Simulated scan of single mutants.
Amino acid sequence: MPRHLPPEVPTPIDFRATSLRALLYIILIGLLMQGVMIEALGLEGQRFSERGFVEPAQSLLLAGSTGLALYVRLTSPRLTHVSLLLLALPLASLIREQDAWLDAWVFDGAWQTLVALLVLPVLFVVIRSRHAFAREFERYANSFSFGLFAAGFLTTYVYSRLFGRSEMWQAILGEAYLRTFKDAAEEVTELFGYTLLFFAMIELVLLVRRWRRLSAD
């Protein structure tokens, strides 16, 4: 029978390590926002499009999150089903972010087909193994990684969609409305959400490594 840590076993994070990671996260956020500023100032006619800074940065963050989730999937038997779901979400979002390229070079609606082919089997596996998934989720839900993941999920898939509504920006700006305002609000908020998801995957990898060390003690 595989050796598992029960949910109540603490997995403490060293204060100095936490402070260092917090500093690195702040620096990364600052660099991303500087990239947004450069796009706003220097890419007239291409701002907040596939040729700008924000959308490629989103794809890079999603690719990083996918790679980290895949690492957890391959190395941690404690989160077999949770890691599958965590892998599917950024990968599906990464496919979605390539919609313009896929529509132009594969076929119109290609990203929807690819996402469906990814998400439906994953959901089938998770639902079929829902009891095992629930046990794993209890272990994961008490972690810093899950807090970041929940914040990133809500920011990206709920708040950014509502904050980027054209109707709201038309009401706010009136006759001064330009679509750029709406695009900037939605895309930059989405960028921050993807950043939180990336941080969550980093923390998940570190959590798995702490579990491994505790198991070896």
Results as ranks from 00 to 15, higher is better:
residue 133 F to L: 10
residue 165 R to D: 04
residue 105 W to M: 13
residue 84 L to D: 12
residue 3 R to W: 06
residue 102 L to H: 02
residue 157 Y to K: 03
residue 149 F to C: 09
residue 122 V to P: 08
residue 32 L to W: 10
residue 113 T to N: 07
residue 212 R to Y: 13
residue 51 R to N: 07
residue 61 L to E: 01
residue 126 V to C: 08
residue 67 G to C: 15
residue 95 I to A: 00
residue 41 L to S: 13
residue 8 E to S: 13
residue 139 R to E: 05
residue 181 F to M: 01
residue 216 A to D: 09
residue 191 L to D: 12
residue 86 L to P: 01
residue 199 F to H: 03
residue 52 G to S: 06
residue 130 R to H: 12
residue 150 A to F: 05
residue 139 R to H: 11
residue 58 Q to R: 15
residue 63 A to Q: 01
residue 184 A to P: 01
residue 75 T to S: 13
residue 102 L to V: 07
residue 20 L to K: 12
residue 45 G to Q: 06
residue 37 M to A: 09
residue 133 F to E: 01
residue 138 E to N: 09
residue 69 A to G: 08
residue 13 I to S: 04
residue 46 Q to L: 15
residue 207 L to R: 06
residue 149 F to Q: 05
residue 196 L to V: 01
residue 157 Y to P: 00
residue 131 H to M: 08
residue 154 L to A: 15
residue 197 L to V: 05
residue 154 L to E: 14
residue 148 L to F: 14
residue 32 L to A: 07
residue 103 D to T: 10
residue 97 E to D: 11
residue 107 F to K: 09
residue 203 E to F: 06
residue 32 L to Y: 05
residue 143 S to G: 11
residue 74 L to P: 03
residue 44 E to F: 05
residue 14 D to I: 09
residue 126 V to L: 12
residue 75 T to R: 14
residue 98 Q to C: 04
residue 150 A to H: 02
residue 5 L to P: 02
residue 147 G to F: 04
residue 9 V to A: 00
residue 167 E to G: 09
residue 111 W to R: 03
residue 24 L to F: 10
residue 205 V to L: 10
residue 78 R to H: 11
residue 37 M to Y: 15
residue 201 M to A: 10
residue 54 V to A: 04
residue 111 W to G: 02
residue 171 A to P: 00
residue 51 R to C: 03
residue 105 W to N: 14
residue 62 L to F: 14
residue 163 F to N: 15
residue 178 L to E: 13
residue 42 G to Y: 13
residue 40 A to Q: 13
residue 103 D to F: 09
residue 136 E to K: 08
residue 149 F to V: 10
residue 58 Q to K: 13
residue 21 R to S: 15
residue 188 V to S: 01
residue 190 E to N: 00
residue 53 F to H: 07
residue 170 Q to Y: 00
residue 80 T to Y: 03
residue 166 S to F: 08
residue 2 P to D: 13
residue 32 L to G: 08
residue 206 L to Y: 14
residue 9 V to T: 06
residue 149 F to S: 12
residue 13 I to P: 03
residue 175 E to C: 04
residue 190 E to S: 10
residue 98 Q to P: 02
residue 97 E to K: 11
residue 106 V to N: 11
residue 132 A to R: 15
residue 33 M to I: 07
residue 206 L to N: 04
residue 142 N to W: 11
residue 182 K to S: 05
residue 198 F to N: 03
residue 68 L to E: 00
residue 177 Y to K: 03
residue 177 Y to F: 15
residue 212 R to V: 03
residue 56 P to K: 04
residue 92 A to G: 06
residue 23 L to W: 15
residue 191 L to A: 08
residue 152 G to P: 15
residue 12 P to W: 14
residue 161 R to W: 04
residue 105 W to L: 11
residue 95 I to K: 03
residue 68 L to Q: 02
residue 181 F to G: 04
residue 186 E to R: 14
residue 176 A to M: 11
residue 119 V to Y: 05
residue 56 P to H: 07
residue 206 L to T: 14
residue 27 I to M: 14
residue 139 R to M: 14
residue 153 F to K: 01
residue 142 N to P: 10
residue 130 R to I: 05
residue 80 T to M: 06
residue 212 R to M: 15
residue 73 R to Q: 14
residue 201 M to C: 11
residue 24 L to T: 08
residue 123 L to F: 15
residue 9 V to C: 00
residue 7 P to S: 14
residue 113 T to C: 06
residue 147 G to Q: 09
residue 71 Y to M: 04
residue 159 Y to G: 00
residue 32 L to C: 06
residue 197 L to M: 13
residue 183 D to L: 14
residue 85 L to Q: 10
residue 42 G to W: 11
residue 87 L to R: 00
residue 140 Y to Q: 01
residue 93 S to Q: 02
residue 1 M to V: 10
